[in-house]
Amino acid sequence: KWTITVQGEEAIKWAIKVAEARNLDYTVHIDGDQAHITIE
C-alpha cells in the first residue's frame, strides 16, 4: 500500500487515469489543489 501526493488538476486527472488503467484499487483524498492517492 502506498500513497502519492499530486498537485494541480491536470496531475490529479493523470494519476487517476494511471490507477484506473492499471486496474488498481485506490482512494483519493482531495485537499485544496492537492490530492493524496492511496493505492492498495
Score class of each variant (00 low, 15 high):
Asp31Arg: 07
His29Gly: 03
Trp14Val: 12
Lys13Glu: 08
Ala19Met: 15
Gln7Ala: 08
Arg22Pro: 03
Asp31Lys: 10
Ile16Thr: 04
Ala21Pro: 00
Ala35Asn: 02
Leu24Asp: 02
Trp2Asp: 02
Lys1Ala: 10
Val6Trp: 02
Val6Pro: 00
Ile30Asn: 04
Ile39Met: 07
Ile12Val: 05
Glu40Val: 14
Asn23Gln: 10
Gln7Thr: 13
Gly32Pro: 02
Asn23Thr: 03
Lys13Met: 05
Gln7Tyr: 14
Lys13Leu: 09
Ile12Glu: 02
Leu24Arg: 04
Leu24Gln: 04
Gly32Arg: 04
Thr38Leu: 05
Trp14Gly: 07
Thr27Met: 06
Asp31Thr: 09
Ile39Glu: 00
Thr5Val: 13
His36Met: 12
Trp14Ser: 11
Arg22Phe: 15
Ile30Arg: 11
Ile30Asp: 02
Ala11Val: 06
Thr3Gln: 09
Ile16Arg: 03
Val18Arg: 04
Val28Asn: 00
Lys1Trp: 12
Thr27Val: 09
Lys17Arg: 09
Thr3Asp: 03
Gln7Val: 13
Ile30Ser: 04
Lys13Asn: 07
Gly32Gln: 05
Val6Glu: 00
Gly8Pro: 01
Thr5Leu: 09
Ile12Asp: 01
His29Glu: 13
Gln7Ile: 13
Ile16Pro: 02
Gly32His: 05
Asp31Cys: 14
Ile39Asp: 00
Ala11Arg: 07
Glu9Trp: 13
His29Ser: 11
Asp25Ile: 15
Ala21Tyr: 10
Gln34Asp: 06
Thr3Ile: 12
Val28Lys: 01
Ala19Gly: 02
Ala15Pro: 02
Ala19Pro: 00
Ile30Phe: 13
Ala11Phe: 10
Asp33Gly: 07
Glu40Gln: 13
Ile16Tyr: 03
Thr3Trp: 10
Glu10Trp: 12
Glu10Thr: 08
Asp25Ser: 14
Glu9Thr: 12
Glu9Lys: 10
Gln34Leu: 14
Glu40Thr: 14
Gln34Arg: 14
Glu20His: 06
Thr38Phe: 05
Gln34Lys: 14
Thr27Trp: 08
Tyr26Met: 04
Asp31Ser: 11
Ala15Gly: 02
Ile30Val: 09
Lys13Phe: 07
Glu40Tyr: 15
Asn23Tyr: 07
Ile12His: 01
Thr5Ala: 04
Trp14Arg: 14
Trp14Gln: 14
Ile30His: 06
Ala19Ile: 15
Arg22Ala: 13
Val18Ile: 13
Ile39Ser: 01
Ile12Arg: 03
Ala15Ile: 15
His29Ala: 09
Ile12Ser: 01
Val18Met: 14
Lys17Ser: 14
Thr38Ile: 12
Lys13Ile: 09
Ala19Trp: 03
Thr3Glu: 08
Lys13Asp: 06
Arg22Lys: 12
Asp25Ala: 14
